[in-house]
Design a protein around this nucleic acid. Structure first.
Lengths: 160, 160
DNA sequence: GATGTAAATGTTATGATATAACATGTCAAG
DNA sequence: CTTGACATGTTATATCATAACATTTACATC
């Protein structure tokens, strides 16, 4: 499996895409989900892009391939993928990315480079633990969390 | 000072508002910022509401009081407040809240109740530490972070 | 294989959020 | 009392998102 530490480094996109797609299919089969043509294609588009994409960017790709060209087509597929943990929403960018390791129960923390716009998913179990502790201290029960950091990726840190 | 632990509990709104406003004025004086009528009024509106408000909600209030009634009026004042740390943006809600303790360098973590929509600012230094450690592990430098949790506040947890 | 049903997709329309661009006003320093 | 920087007002438009309904598809059951 692709190391987390390589998130910002060059690597075999085709390989990690194929792996994520296989994971998605395995998950769909296991849970009886319908990974329909639109949904599967949206996931592929996100995986191929390998970066955060807006719903309308995805829609444009879909329309060019003969799928519907109205916003709900993209939003519904994206919503499905996010619900199933196959994609994530990046609040800060109003955008979506494919999940790099579907099926593994994880708490995503996103690192967004403000210079090159790359987005990486970092292991963040410790962040989740800290957040839940802080919430528990005031009696709050965490159900879902959004953790996003804006800053500089290794390459852009070096360039600066 | 208002304890963090009371964030979700009933308390003296007028008191904490006055305190936050005084803090804002002190900060403005110290940094030579211009806390103009619109900016000050927007901060007051957020403090009085004591919850997250959308830019258009704020705008409506402003317009009713004789300020401009076009979106940029609200967005510019909100942007100023957020930049100065006097208010925060809640990404998940596309909304804004007044900062409850301006001037104290802090990393806000927001707890959003999905039932009553209350938003509380929780102490989250430990979350920031965990996030920075996770980022550093992949060579990423964190500049700003967004930490938001969706779940149930104490009151709504009890009611459920 | 016909048929009923639920889910998915397509489509229309609109709502909600946000910003670019430029005009006008304000105020303090020179 | 002008100039320059910044704030505000205004127009217009860009961008993001969803409600509501029509149509199609998948699939279990008869």
């Amino acid at each position: 499996m692709q190391s987390e530490a390589l998130a910002f480094q060059s690597h075999d996109h085709a390989g990690c895409s194929a792996e994520a797609l296989a994971g998605a299919e395995a998950l769909a089969a296991a849970k009886g989900l319908r990974l329909t043509p639109v949904r599967r294609r949206v996931l592929e588009i996100l995986l191929e892009a390998h970066r955060a994409m807006g719903a309308y960017d995805v829609l444009q790709r879909l329309a060019a391939e003969g799928f519907g060209n109205q916003p709900p087509v993209a939003y519904r597929a994206l919503e499905f993928l996010v619900e199933q943990g196959l994609a994530h929403r990046i609040q800060r960018l109003n955008a979506f990315t494919a999940c790099m390791h579907p099926g593994h129960d994880h708490v995503p923390a996103f690192l967004i480079c403000r210079t090159c716009n790359a987005v990486a998913e970092a292991p963040a179990a410790s962040v989740r633990v800290a957040l839940e502790a802080a919430a528990a201290a005031v009696g709050f029960t965490v159900e879902r969390s959004t953790v996003e950091a804006l800053g500089l990726c290794p390459a852009c840190t070096g360039a600066a």
